[in-house]
Design a protein around this nucleic acid. Sequence first.
DNA 1: CTAATTGTTCTATTTGCGCTAGAATAAGTG
DNA 2: CACTTATTCTAGCGCAAATAGAACAATTAG
Lengths: 118, 118
Amino acid sequence: MLLTVDPTSEVPLFAQLAAAVRAEAAAGRIHAGDRLPAAREVAAGLAVNVHTVLRAYQDLRDEGLVDLRRGRGAVLTAQAATLEDLRTDIDGLVARARAAGIHPDALAALVKEIARDR
Amino acid sequence: MLLTVDPTSEVPLFAQLAAAVRAEAAAGRIHAGDRLPAAREVAAGLAVNVHTVLRAYQDLRDEGLVDLRRGRGAVLTAQAATLEDLRTDIDGLVARARAAGIHPDALAALVKEIARDR
DNA sequence: CTAATTGTTCTATTTGCGCTAGAATAAGTG
DNA sequence: CACTTATTCTAGCGCAAATAGAACAATTAG
């Protein structure tokens, strides 16, 4: 699995990392039961601090996407499959929004807003 | 139109404001041609700085949702109707995600990620 | 059982962004 | 014209992101 990060982005590094993992799961490139690379490993590979990676992993745990245990690492839960199922729907929505000239960030913010007050 | 803001949220105020406007447009409570309340007015009503409101308005302009001109204020573009059209699709996606136990923020981040690298 | 791996927790420091504040300026309205 | 409204600048404050180092606890591997 290839995690990348853009240090110049206004999006926090830990958020980028978490987003990358979600995307990998949704794309079916990683699956339930798979183990994410160790935080220290990712940190070294991306020239990023360990705490930053762990923050991302902890957020994913809070969402229920990974199980996080000492000595064992971060293991994907069954929710990975759920994300993969949603991917088709998301692709469709993104395609329609793109065709309509809606900015990606605006679409995401709108989804967040609508999902929030339900 | 009723704009609100949560000062305790970790989401920046300007982002909350922009999100609120998008949501109003998507819900069909404001339409193309409608004028948003003046920045100073919103700022006073919400106990927020004018610059913060203007930052939100400028973001919306960059997205193409409003026309922003001195002396005239912020006027909704035709994109408001587009957002309203997308709302049904978003509602559906949100409902499915909710049923699957996906966290709203995670869904929004996933949409953003998928929309980004297309 | 021992050693290595891996996340957890703690303290500390630096940096950038959000937000506020005030003022001057320019464009549009009535 | 007076008035409204966004635009652009400077300045400062506070907080969260990110870095760094260390000690600790749970799990795995040998």
